[in-house]
Design a protein around this nucleic acid. Structure first.
Lengths: 183, 183
DNA sequence: GTCTATAGCCGGATAGAC
DNA sequence: GTCTATCCGGCTATAGAC
C-alpha cells in the first residue's frame, strides 16, 4: 500500500464509511455519522483523510482497479469469446465488491462526473459493448444494458443462498437474457 | 384534481423538479436549483408546495397509483398467468413513467422509508413474487429480482429506437431471463 | 494523533412587503 | 401570487490546544 503506517483507525473509518454510504448514500451520510460509528470526532476523520471525497475515492479504488483489469482482459479477446468472458467477469466483479457497488449505485450520476472517476464511463461503455458481443444491433445493446443493471440489484439484496450458487445463477440467467449460446 | 386553480406555475415547478431530480437526484437538487430553472424564487416554490418533500410526493403520485392498479390486477390472476402479466405490466409501468422511475431510483432506500410511500415495499414484494410465478425457489426469486432491476436501467437511458420496439424487446428479454415459456 | 471550538457555507423554511 | 429579507439548522472544513 502507498501509506506505510497501518494505524488501524484508517481501516475502521473506511469500514464504517462503507457501511454507512451503502445504507444511506454518500450525500446522505455526514462526517458526524461516520465519526459516531467509529467512535471518534469529525476532526479525527479529517486528520486521516483530506475530506469526505477522499474517503469515497479510497473506498472505491479497489473495485475501479478491478474494473480496469477486466477492461484490459476483454480488450484482448475476439468477438465470440468476449461475450461470455464479459458476463463472468462482470458477475465476479460485482459480487466481489458488493458493498462498494451499492455505494456507487446510490449517487451514480453525480459520482461519475468526478475527476477521480475519469475513464469509468468509457470502461462501462466497452463492457456494454462486450456484453453485446460488439454487435451494433440495438436489441443486443439493450439486453446488454439489462444485464448491466440486473446483476448489481441482486448483489445488493442480502440472500439466503451461498455465494457460489448465487454466482452460478446470475451467470446463467444473464446468459439467457443475452440469448448467449453455450460455448 | 383536488386543487381547482390551474395556475400553470405549479405544473412548471413539477416539470422542472422532475427534470432536476432525475438528473441530479432528490438530495442532490436544492430548492434554489428548481427556482432557478423555473425562473422564480425559493419562496414562490414554497407558496405552491408545502415543502420539498411535498413536491416529490406529488410528482410520484401517478406512478404509485399505477403500481397499485397493477398490484390489484395481478392479485386476481392464477399462478400460471401471473408471470407473463407481471412482466408486461411492469415493463409498461416503467416505460410510462420513465422520468419518475429515474427519480425513485436515485434515492430509493431513503425514499421508501417515508410515510407517503407506505405500502410500496409490500407491492414491490408482491410484484417480485408474481415475476417468480409465486415460486419459493431461490433461483426463481433471483431471476425475478434481475428483471426488476434490468427494466428501469434501460428506460433511464435515452435510446435511438422507438418506444414500441423497446417495449417489445424488454418484454421478450425479460421473459428469457425468467425462462418463461410462451403461452 | 486526537480533541474542542469555531468559522463559513448552503440548505430548507418563515415573515412580511408589494 | 410573488417577491425580499432573514432565520435556523446541519454540513464540511480549519485552527489550535493537549
Amino acid at each position: 500500500m502507498s501509506r506505510g503506517t497501518r494505524s488501524g483507525t484508517r481501516e475502521e473509518i473506511l469500514d464504517a464509511a462503507a457501511r454507512l454510504f451503502a445504507a444511506t448514500g454518500f450525500k446522505g451520510t455526514s462526517l458526524q455519522d461516520i465519526a459516531g460509528e467509529v467512535g471518534c470526532s469529525k476532526a479525527a476523520l479529517l486528520y486521516h483523510f483530506d475530506g469526505k471525497d477522499a474517503i469515497l475515492t479510497e473506498l472505491l479504488a479497489p473495485p475501479l482497479e478491478a474494473l480496469a483489469t477486466l477492461d484490459a482482459r476483454l480488450a484482448g479477446l475476439g468477438d465470440d469469446a468476449v461475450q461470455l468472458a464479459a458476463v463472468e467477469g462482470y458477475v465476479d466483479l460485482v459480487m466481489r465488491f458488493r458493498r462498494e457497488v451499492t455505494v456507487l449505485y446510490d449517487d451514480m450520476p453525480a459520482l461519475l462526473q468526478r475527476p477521480a472517476f475519469a475513464g469509468v464511463q468509457e470502461m462501462s461503455d466497452r463492457l456494454l459493448d462486450a456484453l453485446a458481443a460488439r454487435s451494433p444491433d440495438p436489441a443486443a445493446r439493450i439486453t446488454a444494458l439489462m444485464v448491466l443493471g440486473s446483476v448489481p440489484v441482486v448483489c445488493m439484496k442480502p440472500t439466503e443462498i451461498g455465494d457460489d450458487e448465487l454466482r452460478s445463477i446470475l451467470t446463467r440467467s444473464a446468459a439467457r437474457t443475452l440469448d448467449l449460446r453455450r460455448a
